[in-house]
Design a protein around this nucleic acid. Sequence first.
DNA 1: AGAGATTTGTACGTATGTATG
DNA 2: TCATACATACGTACAAATCTC
Lengths: 138, 138
Amino acid sequence: MIMIDHGSDRALYRQLADILRGKVASGELQPGQSLPSEGTLAQEYGLGRDTVRDALALLRSEGLVATERGKGTFVRVPETVAIVSLKSGDSLVARMPTPEERRSLGLNDGVPVLVIDRANGKNEVHGGDRTRIQVGRR
Amino acid sequence: MIMIDHGSDRALYRQLADILRGKVASGELQPGQSLPSEGTLAQEYGLGRDTVRDALALLRSEGLVATERGKGTFVRVPETVAIVSLKSGDSLVARMPTPEERRSLGLNDGVPVLVIDRANGKNEVHGGDRTRIQVGRR
DNA sequence: AGAGATTTGTACGTATGTATG
DNA sequence: TCATACATACGTACAAATCTC
């Protein structure tokens, strides 16, 4: 098993994030599955709880996991994706949501928004985890 | 001046983030301008440095500020935006970059990527802070 | 070049509160 | 009711990058 190298230049919390990211990538941790608790991870890897929390915060910011208070941290399950069509004259950008957008759309950490500027001047904001943009071929 | 309410339900670091976000929104803090140091903020608002860091981390995750080690935290300056055209049959999604994508594109915290699936099967990844997607009207 | 001050990064500890099961 | 788990907030200490003199 891969462990933490206290002699490495790489920060301990980054090493732990690498390990957990790898377990998600390899399928050892499946979508919906819970990670060990912060306390358990701290004990298993010989780290302070703060260091474990830094690692989990990093993975949340990447959109890889979601943490629920009192429950635990879980590998994110992909959302059902809706197709949104773009037409000639439309444009869009991607950015992180404002706190208000996060609330109103119910977005997790590590989820951007797509902001569409329609040719008619109207504006749309879509959650990045549940939206695919498509041109033509409707 | 707006201060921190230790009696409030809202977490202290969120209150501080609200204050700083407001100063950016109002223009009191201009793009490129540095925020007070963590130590200064902690002293001014009567908070622990850890709490100040939580607030700054939140603002970074929103793409509002960028922190440079040894220098300070600065209001993000908008990047020069390149226009990328979509054609019929193309599609795209937005998500947070992998660590590798962040490195290779030189992306800050709080900056998503746009992943374009071209009709010919090819794939493109663009930094969300420097890209506008457009359909037609080139 | 070098020394010292400033600033952020990392890592630990403790304590308490709140949500969940 | 009780145990578990995450959230918040304080403290300390040292490392590393930057800046100034």
